[in-house]
Amino acid sequence: MFSDEEWTAIFLSLRVGTIATLVALPVAVAVALLLARGRFPGKAVVDGFVHLPLVLPPVVTGYVLLILFGRRGVLGAALADWFGIVFSFRWTGAALAAGVMGFPLMVRAIRLSLEAIDPRVEQAAATLGAGPLWVFVTVTLPLAARGIAAGAVLAFAKSLGEFGATITFVSNIPGQTQTIPAAIYSYTQTPGGEVGALKLSIVAAAIALGALIVSEISVRRVGRNGEAP
């Protein structure tokens, strides 16, 4: 049904999307918390910076990543020297691009759900003896679960479709950085590639739909446990 190259692209996309989502999620929760609850000068600047990937042309984001995280980039060189983490022309770079592009969507969804929590529920927990960390783990996180799940799914779906930033940052190397959209693009540039492009498009749609259903089910389950905002 699929050629080896197509399977490679599908699995790569799944891996890139999963890793990007998992790594970005805790950071997104922290940033959402900062934006929802924090009161500090320059909050608007941080807010704007977080949203940059959403409004910039993806090619620009990819180019910025290339400058920062490329082999000779400021951060890229340091990471490669100290931790042996290399992004350029590797699947890790594709994951980084996908994570960065999905990040604002994640932060938005999580921030909204955090802002919907009545601070008095958390205060009630505090008067019952729970310290700030316990309040966060036992009250804030469960009450924000829907937003966190929604944010994760959005970011995952976004990472499956990410094209511009990825191709600018890590190019289109089969087996390394050729995700589904890049593969579809290659097919459309090849005579007789229409069938391949169509097949992969259907796969992309199926995966995105599957992720949506999984998140819906998990949110429902949380909902049945009593959370009903």
């Binding site: 009545d118 008095r120 529920v121 205060q123 009630a124 927990a125 009250v139 469960p142 009450l143 679960a145 949380v222 446990n225 009593g226 959370e227 009903a228 905002p229």
Partner: peptide, 9 residues
């Protein structure tokens, strides 16, 4: 609290 503020989850 005036309105309970039970943990909904």
């Amino acid at each position: 609290f005036q309105d309970g503020q039970l943990f909904p989850h």
